[in-house]
Design a protein around this nucleic acid. Sequence first.
DNA 1: CAAATTACTTCGTGCCACGAACAATCACAA
DNA 2: TTGTGATTGTTCGTGGCACGAAGTAATTTG
Lengths: 143, 143
Amino acid sequence: MKETLGAASALVRLTFLVQNLYVEVGRGCDLTQAQAQMLCSLSDRSVGMAELSGMLGLERSSLTGLVDRAQQRGLVVRENNPHDRRAVKVTLTAEGTSALNRFHDELTRRLSDLLQDLPATERERFTRTLGRVVAGVPAVFAD
Amino acid sequence: MKETLGAASALVRLTFLVQNLYVEVGRGCDLTQAQAQMLCSLSDRSVGMAELSGMLGLERSSLTGLVDRAQQRGLVVRENNPHDRRAVKVTLTAEGTSALNRFHDELTRRLSDLLQDLPATERERFTRTLGRVVAGVPAVFAD
DNA sequence: CAAATTACTTCGTGCCACGAACAATCACAA
DNA sequence: TTGTGATTGTTCGTGGCACGAAGTAATTTG
């Protein structure tokens, strides 16, 4: 019992840590957390509003405003879908891509620092297990 | 390089996962994420505003409103410090304690489910390494 | 006692998220 | 073809969260 308590606590602490990093790196790129997450979800392709809201775990109505603000900042654009006039595809602009790259690189750097002090074998094992634990989670942060 | 990329991605996914759990369990207890975090920070003792803002990584001005709303909901109270009339101590009410306990129990349950499928040895190793990684992080979620 | 420091609050701004209600479009079946 | 129902996305109102600048009150320090 003490063991699961410890594990749960450690998971929460790790989350707190990574989350703070996420926000901090985002700030450095002039991105809010929500914006950074959205850009990550758009890194490799255009995505419709419904699918995007699913990826981010948001209601569609929440996403509208998020995309609005990102569009006003020139990070993304809404594109028409010729096959379905209801649908919209959200796409990164050049500026959005550049912001995403800066964010991604810096975050990756800071995150790998977290594990840097572990012995190689332990780090490797840890990463492998981590992969198993999150196997079912969709990648918001593309490899 | 591929290795650190994978590790960073896995860390972000895990964070996403735990965070969603946190929010979801919070909702079940009628707590926002910020409120739940605050209650966790108050679990074992009363804390002043300045110290609390440090624990939560918030500006003091942000904390004022957070405590206001929690107080209006009857989760915490502000108590006077007899030795320093400027200072305030934030303390859980009975209702706040009860909400925290429900939140804590449910979250712990759900979090340990995450690791449940791992073989015992691997789980143990993972938890131990996790402990090392977060060693320096203050515990927002008390053991 | 005067000045600097500390603890906290107020105010204005902006972002984020939700749910209910709505408009437009599409798919399909009678 | 024409309903009918589902899907896509938006608007609107409400509330919470976080920041920084500026302010108040009490304490400490020289």
